[in-house]
């Protein structure tokens, strides 16, 4: 039995920064981001319900919790939690990336991988692409500064204006495919990291990860592609 003395309760630096602890930070922050993505994807599909519904939904997000709390309180809580999750996710990733680089400075002359998937091989650079995309995406549709319709347009008009441009849609398609691959390995890896996988569950977890990644990516791809081909106007 391990006896905990009061002085031991704070995690010392070594345990806090163990590679497995960093992976746990990665997994937990990833789960927070994935939960947000599910809500985000469902919200996007409201583009099909027309301008009024979509703009109303956008307005509602700002009013969640009213009148119990002042307007935008819940929105800001969500934003702060997401920002914290993104920072933690990136910190853990960079730290583990550097540890892996240090662990093998001399590369193999001949190298053959048999177990790794495209998804697992591209986690790190795919993550960098996603990080850059999120910055662009916020400038485009949240702040409106990178949007053809500008900041003063309604959310619906901004979405239509942006997604009518094939280049913009191209950027979104590339980033969303990167997201799909990131989720495919991320869901499986988080399950392992949190100690919830085993031999019998392994197949189910991997199958779920694939289905989840495909559904989420497809859900995100449908609105921009629909605007581009004119299903949504």
């Amino acid at each position: 039995m391990t006896v905990t003395h009061s002085g031991q309760r704070r995690t010392p630096k070594a345990a806090k920064t163990s590679s497995v602890f960093k992976k746990v930070v990665m997994a937990v922050s990833g789960i927070i981001l994935v939960l947000y993505l599910i809500a985000h994807m469902v919200g996007n599909l409201k583009l099909f319900a027309g301008a009024e519904t979509f703009n109303g939904y956008s307005e509602w997000i700002r009013r969640i919790g009213e009148p119990a709390v002042p307007g935008q309180t819940v929105l800001w809580i969500i934003r702060v939690v997401l920002l914290a999750a993104v920072v933690a996710h990136i910190w853990a990733a960079i730290s583990l990336w550097r540890q892996a680089k240090r662990a093998r400075p001399q590369q193999y002359v001949a190298r053959k991988q048999v177990a790794q998937s495209y998804a697992s091989r591209t986690m790190r650079w795919g993550g960098v692409i996603l990080g850059l995309f999120v910055v662009y995406h916020l400038l485009d549709l949240t702040f409106g500064v990178a949007n053809p319709a500008g900041h003063d347009a309604t959310p619906y008009d901004r979405a239509i204006a942006g997604f009518s441009n094939p280049i913009v849609v191209g950027v979104y398609v590339v980033a969303l495919l990167a997201l799909g691959f990131h989720l495919r390995h991320g869901v499986w890896s988080a399950t392992q990291t949190l100690g919830q996988s085993n031999k019998t569950r392994e197949r189910t977890v991997n199958a779920f990860a694939t289905v989840f990644a495909v559904v989420l990516t497809a859900g995100f791809l449908i609105p921009p592609l629909s605007v581009l081909v004119g299903i949504i106007e």
Binding site: T2, V3, T4, Q8, R9, T11, P12, A14, A15, S18, V20, F21, K23, V24, T191, Q192, T193, L194, G195, Q196, S197, N198, K199, E202
Partner: peptide
Amino acid sequence: MENISRLNHDLLGALRAGARP
């Protein structure tokens, strides 16, 4: 690979129980 998952599970439990290196 299930052993890795078991290790992770043990580590989380150990840290919660206050075990420190």
